[in-house]
Design a protein around this nucleic acid. Sequence first.
RNA 1: GCGCUCAUAGCUCAGCUGGAUAGAGCAUCUCCCUCCUAAGGAGAGGGUCGGACGUUCGAAUCGUCUUGAGCGCGCCA
Length: 541
Amino acid sequence: MSIENSLKNKIIDAFKKLNVSLSEQDIVIENSRSPEHGDYATNVALKYASRLGKKPIELANFLKGNLDMSEIDHIEIAGPGFINFFIKNDAINSIVKKIILEGDKYGHGEDKHKKINVEFVSANPTGDLHLGHARCAAVGDSICRLYEFAGYDVTREFYVNNAGNQIRTLGLSLDIRLRQLHGEKIELPDDSYHANDIIDIAKQYDKEFGKDYKVGDAKCLAHLTEYGMKAELKKIEKDLELFRTKFDIYSFETDVRKDHHVEDVLKNKFSKYSYIQDGATFLRTTDFLDDKDRAVIKSDGSFTYLMPDIAYHLIKLSRGYDQLIDVLGADHHGYINRMKSALMMQGYSKDVLEVELVQVVRLIKDGEEVKMSKRTGTGVSLRELCEEVGVDATRYFFVSRAASSHLDFDLNLASEQSSNNPVYYAQYAHARISKVLETAKDIKIDLDAPLLKEKKEMDLLKLLIEFPKLIEISAPKRAPHMVATYIQSLAAAIHGFYSECRVIDRDHLDVTSSRLALMKASQIVMKNALSVLGVSAPDKM
RNA sequence: GCGCUCAUAGCUCAGCUGGAUAGAGCAUCUCCCUCCUAAGGAGAGGGUCGGACGUUCGAAUCGUCUUGAGCGCGCCA
């Protein structure tokens, strides 16, 4: 049991003597910020005093006198009625052994028996992944890793919108590029895709099928379009893999339309909520969360994007997930309530789908914003980012801030291999430990680490203790940036300890053994934390 | 006009279910390698937490109003 839970139980027991029964959720134990407030503090006396007709100080003193004191060195009452706990060193030191024994499982949550589907990136296969996709990939994948580490069962899913206008545009762009290759004097229209990769694909296609291509032939165009879509998707997949992001399932909009009879879904499941106006079919989403009813069939008889998307979400739910999560660019926020409304029409709770909005990224180079555009081909792609600043730094930068925050991605800072770069700061802490452990590999490590008592040692220990709680809190919030923040303070604590406390001292092997254990434990936690973000933990730098 | 997201140090941002003196990095300024990686450490300066009111013993955090920014409000996806 963690020290925190142990304290809670002691408090619960003490309250029983007042005939008050509390549960763990009723009690807040927090890490004290300043040392004079002890190691942990609670506000229970402030919170429950008035309910018991007592003064907070009075209640605090009663609790102090009625607590089981094992693990506790002493207790102080402070301020308006805070109870500050000063924990015995050996109770704190015991975390070292636990961490070393658990290894890469330390911090891993218990099995939650919850199946979660996370859909992210879901870029149209019409070109390279750009900056926005890159952040979505980093955030989405880190959310998945965080959920997994916290004990959830996660499926990563990519939805390929391959039935809409954008694919048509892709086909037409390829068609024109192909004809240009054949010497035709023809201009690429403004609303086509101008990126160079379209030319590359056209060239490739030309090599394989060029001589059979008939301009104006619908079948040829369809073949070219399909070829282009597959080529684009393959590139996307490859880039994502480079970015350490692998999807379990790729779902295609064409399959949703073909295999799942979207018409029938609409007719059988949504007739109660649909109506026809001006020749188009609308869904009465305003009965639920939406501020406007949404068209699902256009007056020309074709579906809007929404209806297949609804069908797709129902398909996902039918696979038995407890929770669907969509990671979307912030400009899609208008979409949330219509999808939730549609799911509610089928009796689902509005919370069955959670949407994580990812704010835009500004790329900054030499103090100026680098504009990007997929269409003109001048933009910075995920692949270029990985090549220029590396996967570790890119991933770390994207998740180091809350997804809801706008992010300035400083290209100079991210690619800088120096102390200024927070990624290297953290990785360096890990590498330093590796070196120390390597140098001292002949010295026995004392798992009980009884001789840790310096301030820097205690600061580090307390951070190590916090890690499992951090995972439990940040996972349901889908907040990998909390892990990034933690990593920074952990790295600072490691560096601080390293500078102040000489680890290897062959004249004092008992202290050395304790400190080596602390190093080992710190290394494990740093590595586990970095892996939640998909960032490597190098042994050498 | 309606809705969503946001507003914290010069800049970029943390701040967990409300807690005791609001934190970090960058930038600026001081110090510290005969010693395990100086890609490091110690320290200084820098704040009306956009504003107002309210709830509370207690508010950056919760509520209402207000100001400003970004985005969305298609029979596009």
